[in-house]
Design a protein around this nucleic acid. Structure first.
Lengths: 194, 194
DNA sequence: AAAAACTGACTGACCAATCAGTAGAGGTGG
DNA sequence: CCACCTCTACTGATTGGTCAGTCAGTTTTT
């Protein structure tokens, strides 16, 4: 692996662990075994490094979901939705860094003034909500789901799952203990009609 | 209002807006119209100021919910649950600062090494989940709710609502557009039995 | 030899925290 | 009434340290 990759990997870890402001470029350099100046040779500024870190996380998340969906078959839209939730929780466990970065405040503040940042965030959330929405739409066709508006239902389910992930990565509650309850709640939202 | 209160108020705004590390004591001083040294006269360190800001938010949230619950009557446990959700979203709109502070990474990192911080966070979340849990338990008694485990159901509902609040304060999606969907989803989770 | 990768030493800006000292309110003795 | 004292609130100036970013020059690769 090239030194540039080492730096990027260290940056993701540190930005996730400490947040943008509290992660110093000196630390990134130390963690990746290069001198401070080398970091600036490969990345023109701290903000630029953060944006590339965010882009890497974006690509990682999207690629992982693509792979998961291509490797599994689902009997119904409802089963697909449950699979996505399970995989989201699994990924948040194995790739905790990605979700810590995604739950930190900085990218959302930067997105207000930086179009590239906004674009990365939109891509991530749109991709994830799209996946849920496709499951809902599919389930409505095959009869396994009877919820109303696909997009809004997908958004609420996503915010529920992401809320549980947040509790997990901030050490508030254990996701494992809530997994069954989460899947059950999701089924109820999707199966029933008010 | 005393200068100490001015400082605390400015600190809450700045910590919420920029996070702990990016909010400087000089800025807090400037915003509250005192000299830099005065901030340290009233609060012994930046961390101590943050802890008091968090405590103030804790007291504010708990007091607001106490008042809301004492001023309203509810026909059933289900109606109470819906009222709590509505009020949570309302409060996140009017007191956005509180929820920004509560969604920032720093307090959860500090909680790992600082007991006082951990205690504040636990108090906030336990109070909120308790309120939901009481609604679920009440609804099971009066027949308006048929969900399983009260605590776990309360946790999932809370994480769903808090997830939507996060989308709102991070400018990802508009809470208003999701309100009806959220209430509907909550009803489904609470009313039906798998 | 030329280009790319890399580094040590440095700079200016900023920041948390300190400290010596000022201003004024309130109390006390003469 | 005043002279003196004390305590709280407050401040300007300073300090030691950290940080992002630069640059001139060295090493490695092609």
């Amino acid at each position: 692996m090239s030194k540039k990759d080492d730096i990027l990997k260290a940056a993701i870890t540190l930005f996730a662990d400490r947040g943008f402001q509290d992660a110093s470029m000196t630390e990134v350099a130390k963690m990746s075994g290069v001198s401070g100046a080398t970091v600036f040779y490969h990345f023109k500024s701290k903000e630029a490094l953060f944006l590339i870190a965010l882009e890497t996380v974006k690509d990682g998340i999207i690629q992982e979901f693509d792979q998961y969906l291509s490797e599994h078959d689902f009997e119904s839209g409802l089963e697909l939705a449950e699979g996505i939730i399970s995989f989201y929780l699994y990924l948040a466990g194995t790739m905790e860094e990605w979700f810590l970065l995604l739950h930190s405040h900085y990218p959302y503040k930067l997105a207000l003034v930086n179009e590239e940042c906004r674009s990365h965030l939109e891509k991530i959330y749109n991709s994830l909500v799209d996946i849920f929405e496709r499951a809902v739409a599919l389930g409505r066709e095959d009869g396994s789901i009877s919820a109303g508006d696909s997009r809004k239902t997908a958004l609420v389910i996503f915010s529920m799952v992401d809320g549980v992930v947040r509790f997990k990565i901030y050490n508030l509650y254990d996701t494992g203990a809530l997994f069954n309850e989460l899947i059950n709640s999701c089924r109820k939202i999707l199966k029933y009609k008010m």
